[in-house]
Design a protein around this nucleic acid. Sequence first.
RNA 1: GCCCCCGUAGCUCAGUGGAUAGAGCGACGGUUUCCUAAACCGUAGGUCGCAGGUUCGAUCCCUGCCGGGGGUACCA
Length: 595
Amino acid sequence: MFATALEGLAADGVIAVGPDDLPGLLQQVRESADPKHGDYSGTMAMGLAKRAGRKPRDLAAEIIGRLEAVSGYADLFEPPGDPVGPGFINVRVRDQALAAAVTAAVADERLGVAAVAEPRTVVIDFSSPNVAKPMHVGHIRSTVIGDALARILRFRGHEVITDNHLGDWGTQFGMILWGWKHCRDEAAYAADPTAELGRLYRLVRKVADAKPEELAADPEAAALAADHPEAGREVLAETARLHSGDAENRGLWEQFMPVCLAEIERLYRRLDVSFDHQLGESFFQPMLAGVVEDLLAAGLAQESRGAVGVFLDGEEEPPLLIRKADGAFLYATTDLATIQWRLEHWRPDRILYIVDHRQGRHFEQVFETARRWGLGDVDLVHVGFGTVLGDDGRPFKTRAGDTVGLEALLDEGVERAARVVAEAGRGEMDEAMRRRVAETVGIGAIKYADLSQNRTTDYVFSFDKMLQLTGNTAAYMQYAVARVEGICSKGRIDREAVRAAAGCVRLEAAQERALALALVRFAEVLEDVEADNRPNLLTAWLYDLAGRYSSFYDSLPVLKATGDACSSRLALCDLTGRVLRHGLGLLGIGTVERM
RNA sequence: GCCCCCGUAGCUCAGUGGAUAGAGCGACGGUUUCCUAAACCGUAGGUCGCAGGUUCGAUCCCUGCCGGGGGUACCA
């Protein structure tokens, strides 16, 4: 909030240059790298001096002089000193102003975060697993990032519509259908249908792909492949029969769908992820022929080599194919129909697609086609993310060729957390509490490990790193929250009374001041997250905030402080706990009272 | 071939046109009569792939090169 104020002040006539230059120059207010340089630094004098033909330090001195004279400046900031170095303008927030900001946030249910002035309707398309496949670690990124962005944008005041665009109509069903007809285990299906369908999928995929190294590792698949050399083609035929309305396959699809959905629902519940809609590919199936007809009629699409495609960059560049030579529709066709449907029914200002960056080109083409098609004025954004890699630098797979199941990952995370709970000697916790802590901490660690990465870069998957519970992990923030709760319960503190008395906030120790400076940045961090759709900016700030709290906690007593210091520090604890809890909540990560 | 992304500490990764490039893990050393040690404090460790260019200032922007990954007409 202080950076914004400073920019505002500078805009009020401090910098006398051409108005075109102002926005760029105002960006040049930043947090100081080192506390000894004050809280915020202005770097505009250096760049400006060149153009004005003056010495940077002289110009900086002049800016400082004018800044002080602007009304409102003195309420928020200490008088700036002389320019430093080549012409830095270093500014320090007045302790009183900082304390007042903390006081205001303590009293505010929204913790000092105002809702946006112009709310938008934003559709977020994320997770989108193929329902016939078991979910694996590769699914976690889209699911977790999309969920976090949805929560953050909602909190910022936007109208958010989440939609899980399920893959419920593709080749994977052909595999299950083929498997069902050739090698089903009725007893296993009766006992645990999802497990049996999962087994069929994994088995048939190997048979259909017929990769020698995979078959070598799986005798059952190898035997089937030997008996059915045409399995790959037959799988596609099963898919085609489903699409053409074949009664048997359609019936099986209707039988399998609830089973598949129940499977992924269980994972979503455990991850605490929910959707407003789950309109899968099958939902848009009836519209696809119309999409192709429209695009042909509009002259955007044309036939080529028997297929129909939209040629966006001339005949030489690969087109966006919307109908195959055999008449089947494609991924792109469904995506176009989906955009059309969403615009008509939801009228969004923005649609975010949380999808692996390898599909960047696909989305470029789909978006460009949608624009030329005249679907409407909407921001279509591919929020791409990097691939999860294995130790070998290739997309993640275990040695056997399978990826690690998402459920197994969650189980392992919870189990490791349970072990730490036991080791930590939390003897006073009952069994139910221990389980709840383990679940919250274990799942939180996994989500945080993903969210704290820059989403655009690939990352190497590591069980140990993902399930780590010390250092820069969710547990670190959860632990800080538990410490706040510990203070309040041990001291029998009435939180409401603390908030009512928060006018007494005093920031005397360096640790208190550092904590307060981080606390008042919540709003701008969320703004930055939205601007680039980057949740890792929020994790980085939360980690910084929790770190400042840990230093504060270790060096300054709260309950044993006397008089004003006690109530002031209680207010800081209360706000820190709430901000951390809420911030983690925006990431879809829970907290516990004790751990 | 063309297009996109990446190359930062032993490992995994942040980061930014600005003042001594950061964190975690790992290593080494310290902290518990005191509100939770899942913590805190400290030490060691870097020619930010290489070479040019733009700039008052480049790890960041531009060009070239080297290395890795991905995409590239009928999968999603």
